[in-house]
Design a protein around this nucleic acid. Structure first.
Length: 262
DNA sequence: AGCACTGTTGGATA
DNA sequence: ATATCCAACAGTGC
């Protein structure tokens, strides 16, 4: 589920494993995920480089290299990272493999191939060109959040998921945040009060932080979270009513109608 | 067989 | 300028 918390978990994982290591060999197993250049160029740009640091913005992970360029990873709906000590086991959908001088390796695995991989010369220029709003966790205080949403038309769930407004929140976490804030996903932003927005922002930050501390693993989420119960008709963990599935902005949306109004 | 799924993009439309 | 809707990308799982 690569939304902000998942990507943050990938960042920590990378930091604890591959960071500081020098790339000896690059295997591009599927060049169709590579944007802004060819597989050959990516391989050449990564070879002999050392991974210096890893940062995140929204759902994007950026890995700084020792020559100033950066490897950008986006995970689409199904991507993940896997680090192997010693011999590399088969991962079924590995699209990019970095083998380090140590003999260990890092695999970017992306079954549905909806992810993106690219090498950029200038990370700051890349972020600017990307039309991303501020990071939902790092880039916004409650006034900033309020300012972004004020005067906006449309539904609150769509706004939370709009990456050019604020980035990192996707379909699953927008549902979780709105469930915990007790707000209906179809609520019109224009009809929300200052207090609603303040409460929503606080809830968003709390949910994202807690999800990160749980390794974004639904199996570890508290009893009263919605995410592990994304199924029509399953009992609401708070009121025992039934979880409902509706469509909002063309995406499947789960909510508890009695907890979240109407 | 058919449909749903954690995401992004581009184009048409309002 | 904002927002919505749709199709496309591609693979897996129920």
């Amino acid at each position: 589920m690569p939304e902000l918390p998942d990507v943050e978990v990938f960042r920590s994982y990378l930091q604890a494993t591959a960071l500081g290591q020098k790339v000896r060999n690059v295997e591009v197993r599927d060049a169709s995920l590579i944007k802004g250049g060819s597989g050959r160029e990516l391989a050449r740009g990564l070879a002999e480089r050392t991974l210096r640091s890893a940062s995140r913005r929204g759902k994007y992970l950026a890995v700084d290299l020792d020559n100033g360029s950066a490897l950008i990873l986006h995970f689409g709906m199904t991507g993940r990272l896997k680090y192997f000590r010693g011999s590399m086991r088969d991962t079924r959908h590995d699209r990019l493999r970095l083998v380090f001088q140590s003999g260990h390796s890092l695999v970017y695995d992306c079954p549905r191939k909806l992810g993106q991989v690219r090498l950029v010369k200038d990370l700051q220029a890349f972020w600017q060109a990307m039309d991303l709003g501020p990071d939902a966790l790092e880039g916004l205080d409650s006034d900033g959040f309020n300012g972004l949403l004020r005067g906006r038309r449309g539904m609150i769930k769509s706004a939370l998921m709009n990456q050019s407004l604020l980035c990192g929140v996707g379909n699953v976490y927008s549902d979780e945040i709105l469930f915990q804030a007790r707000l209906h996903p179809r609520r019109l932003v224009r009809e929300m009060t200052e207090h609603d927005l303040l409460h929503l922002h606080a809830t968003m930050v709390r949910v994202l932080k807690q999800a990160i501390s749980l390794q974004a693993d639904p199996d570890r989420m508290p009893e009263d979270w919605l995410t592990p119960r994304r199924e029509q008709g399953t009992p609401c963990p708070v009121c025992q009513g039934k979880v409902q599935r509706i469509e909002v902005g063309g995406r499947g949306c789960f909510l508890c109608p009695s907890c979240q109004g109407e």
